[in-house]
Design a protein around this nucleic acid. Structure first.
Length: 383
DNA sequence: GTAAGCCTAAACACGG
DNA sequence: ACCGTGTTTAGGCTTA
């Protein structure tokens, strides 16, 4: 998901809070693709101590053992404080990780890195969390600064990027000032309802790539549990409200819960590529280890989650419970798999999903760190 | 190699 | 004149 999250590698080293030593995470791909997931089983780099100073930390074992140790999906010992969202936002700039990780380890550096959201999503979150669902540019700056202290030390160019996004991105609309703020400079900006579903989906995808990448089947409660943790974690962004319904939490177990407009063109200059990458990467995920039927199964689910070319209408509801214009719902998924075979696949899939989702959940939290490292690594590799 | 999307920087215009 | 805001353009980067 490079471009969405990252920034020019040349600039990275100039950014305060992004020390070069974080390149030790390079290769720990933010999206948890299969190669990385496979690396997780590697016997190498099994602890922070072991990887300390190891510039070639190229697998997920570090994540498993140092991030996941306090976060067991759906388990009784699940700790909301270890929510990846907390990693992303709540502890940005803090010296200590949410799960008590020492300040000198890489998590501490990760929280100071760039948020794993595109500017579009940052703006969207800021606007949606405002009481009036509209904000002047200045308040958008403020919200971003408040929630992502990374920007407080970042070069001022990010404000330019925010304005650039507001102007260029069709998802955002300028509101007549007479309708909004009475005084002050500039206009109010709000989210165009027409594009809100796109933003919502991107937020879901970008924030919680694991569940969507693997398109969790209904039996997989872990994804939903994890999302519940995301939303319940103190200091975290209220994702349920951002994703369109404050009453019904985002149900990741439903493939159709992530649908957006039937018209892919609506995506415009918005981060559809992120979505494509999520789904495409899922094709190389652990699902690929399934047999043909399993692949068909997985593809059916993926098709449902993408939902761009389906036939049936679906309903979306905004945060006020107002029904949005009907969007497309994917055709009902047919399961050509025999009951027993399906069950076996399901069990296998569940196990892999649990493992992968756990990894990816935390990857979401440190993705900003790892993405940068990955970029740098890639660039270095190219050279 | 190409296309698409995002990020960043810069320049310019406008208004308070 | 200064500053903040809004728009536009250009270049670079990454991924499919």
């Amino acid at each position: 998901m490079g471009p969405i999250i990252g920034m020019s590698p040349d600039k990275k080293s100039e950014i305060p809070g992004m020390p070069e030593e974080r390149t030790g995470l390079r290769g720990v791909c933010g999206m948890g693709t299969l190669p990385e997931a496979e690396c997780a089983s590697s016997p190498l780099a099994t602890s922070v101590d072991r990887t300390e100073g190891d510039e070639e930390l190229t697998n997920l074992n570090w994540l498993h053992e140092n991030l996941l140790q306090n976060f067991t999906l759906g388990g009784p010992e699940a700790q909301p404080s270890a929510s990846p969202l907390l990693d992303i936002e709540g502890d940005y700039g803090s010296e200590q990780g949410p799960s008590g990780t020492p300040p000198h380890d890489r998590v501490g550096h990760a929280v100071k890195s760039k948020p794993p959201f595109s500017f579009s999503l940052l703006i969207y979150m800021a606007i949606e969390q405002s009481p009036r669902k509209s904000l002047p540019v200045k308040d958008i700056y403020g919200w971003i600064l408040e929630h992502f202290p990374y920007f407080s030390n970042a070069p001022t160019g990010w404000k330019n990027s925010v304005r650039h996004n507001l102007s260029l991105n069709k998802c955002f609309r300028k509101v007549d000032r007479s309708l909004g703020k009475a005084n002050g400079k500039g206009s109010l900006w709000c989210v165009d309802p027409e594009y809100r579903p796109n933003l919502i989906q991107a937020l879901k995808k970008q924030h919680f790539p694991a569940a969507h990448a693997f398109c969790t089947p209904p039996s997989d409660i872990d994804a939903a549990t994890a999302m519940m943790l995301l939303n319940s974690a103190p200091g975290c962004i209220n994702l349920t409200s951002l994703t369109g319904n404050s009453d019904v939490p985002l149900d990741l177990s439903r493939p159709d819960s992530v649908l957006v407009s039937s018209d892919p063109k609506q995506d415009h200059n918005y981060s559809s590529m992120a979505l494509q990458r999520c789904s495409s990467r899922s094709s190389s995920s652990s699902l690929s280890s399934l047999d043909e039927e399993g692949c068909e199964h997985a593809q059916s689910i993926r098709a449902g989650s993408e939902g761009f070319h389906s036939e049936e209408d679906m309903d979306l509801w905004d945060e006020k419970g107002v029904q949005l214009p009907p969007l497309r719902r994917p055709a009902p998924i047919k399961w050509p798999i025999r009951k027993r075979a399906r069950h076996e696949i399901k069990v296998e899939l569940d196990e892999e999903l649990k493992e992968a989702a756990g990894s990816l959940l935390h990857l979401a939290g440190i993705r900003s760190c790892t993405e940068g490292s990955k970029r740098k690594s890639t660039k270095h590799h190219r050279k």
